[in-house]
Simulated assay, not measured.
Amino acid sequence: MITCSKIYTDIPFAHRQHLHSGHCSQIHGHNWDIKLDFACSEYDSNGFVVDFGKLKYLKKYIDDNLDHACVFSDEDPLAKQILDSAPAGVYQPYWVKSASGEGLAKHLYQVFSALVREHEGERVWISGIEIFEDRKNTVKFIPQL
């Protein structure tokens, strides 16, 4: 099988690990990278797994939803209080089940997979996603098919 990858770099957003016993429980940010691995059942008419030039919808999702956002867990007991305490527009909340890198990788895999199916059909799919919190820490999610 041949796969290809697209990397979206330097996406600034914050998160909070509300269950963490250390400093990660505080809101803090990173310049994240997101690497998507694509696979296909057959190449397109150009001989590509996926045409990178036609993935603008993924970049738009990132720009509209993650760029300068603050990722909160649905289960964070302080999230609503944090958001309510700030003037409107201070936070751009982005809700996930788990605000960990692992939770974010699984969530974004699901979101991006749905977008790829919507735009590309069944011919191509995301075979894995890797989230880079920084140069030292990454999480990779590979679905069990």
Rank of each mutant, 00 (worst) to 15 (best):
A86N: 02
L55P: 11
N65D: 03
H30Q: 13
L36C: 08
H20F: 12
A114Q: 12
F72T: 00
A105G: 08
E122C: 00
V49L: 08
N31H: 10
D74Y: 14
E130I: 03
K80C: 00
C24A: 15
K140E: 13
V124P: 04
G101R: 11
C40R: 06
I11Y: 02
G128F: 05
K106Y: 06
A105D: 15
S5R: 12
K80V: 07
K59Q: 07
E130W: 07
L145D: 08
A69M: 10
Y8Q: 02
T9P: 01
G128T: 00
P12M: 00
K97D: 13
H30E: 05
F13Y: 12
L58Q: 01
I82C: 01
N31T: 03
Q92F: 10
K136Q: 14
E120K: 11
Q81A: 10
G103Y: 08
N46H: 13
S85W: 01
G121S: 06
K136S: 14
C40Q: 03
V116L: 03
L66K: 07
E120W: 05
V111C: 02
A86W: 02
S5A: 10
Q17L: 15
Y94G: 05
C40G: 11
D67K: 04
F38V: 05
W125K: 04
F72M: 03
S21A: 14
V139T: 14
T3E: 12
I34M: 10
C24M: 14
V111L: 02
R135D: 15
A39K: 06
S127G: 07
V111T: 14
A14Q: 08
L55I: 12
S100D: 13
C70K: 00
V90T: 14
H119A: 04
A69W: 04
K60L: 06
L55F: 06
M1P: 09
I62R: 01
K80Y: 08
R135H: 11
P12T: 00
D76E: 14
F52C: 04
M1A: 09
K54A: 06
A88N: 13
A114Y: 03
S113R: 01
S85D: 12
I7F: 02
Q17K: 13
